[in-house]
Design a protein around this nucleic acid. Sequence first.
DNA 1: GGTATGATTGACT
DNA 2: GTCAATCATACCA
Length: 231
Amino acid sequence: MSAAEVAAAVPELEDGARVSVDGAAAALPAGPAGAGGRPALGPSFYDRPVLDVARDLVGCVVLHAGCSGVIVETEAYHESEPACHAYVGLTPRTRTLFGPPGRAYVYRSYGVHALLNAVCEPEGTAAAVLIRALEPLKGLAAMRARRGVDRDRDLCSGPGKLTRALGIGLERNGSDLLGSGPISILPRPPAWRQVAIACDTRIGITRAVDLRWRFCAVGSRHLSRPVRRGA
DNA sequence: GGTATGATTGACT
DNA sequence: GTCAATCATACCA
């Protein structure tokens, strides 16, 4: 499937458009409960087109080691476009991306940071959603200690910041997100069911720069960068 | 074997 | 606004 076909499979999103949350709401709970007692998003949530999953993950909750935050920014990556690590095919590095959906793909960026992705689409098709920013929910004290900053909006407002804040390292690569692993992703809390979502071009890449595969919670003060309107 | 390049951040001008 | 840190990966010889 080409990048164009992937994009065509998802309805166009206007900036600020309200979107339905059928994806998040309809995904039935996975087996084991997440560490919070609430069931994590199940395999059927991730076994869908990556753009659907990227959009529907905004407003959901990431949980690790007693810390949690609401996802306010995501980006989609798919093997059919050159910005995706898996564009080069199956290598030791991209093995997780080609694996089953619902697992964490964690890799080192710029030799410094760990970046967290959720693997999507059927096993054999490489696609993932990069979690780019969170609004801190629980474990704020631990996050401040790990990050060395005080302001809430500085804790998780970037892909490298949030992994540091939550204590997520490279050893989490390949782990299960469905409730039995150290990282869980929970459905949208009631207050986030109707979140407005804007799309934009992805950040920090040099290839496939025109794809509007970045999804942000409208009005959030916890984004890694503001949404660029227009274009 | 060598080298160029990042899905970034924080410090600095 | 600019730029260094820091290293796994990919690619070329």
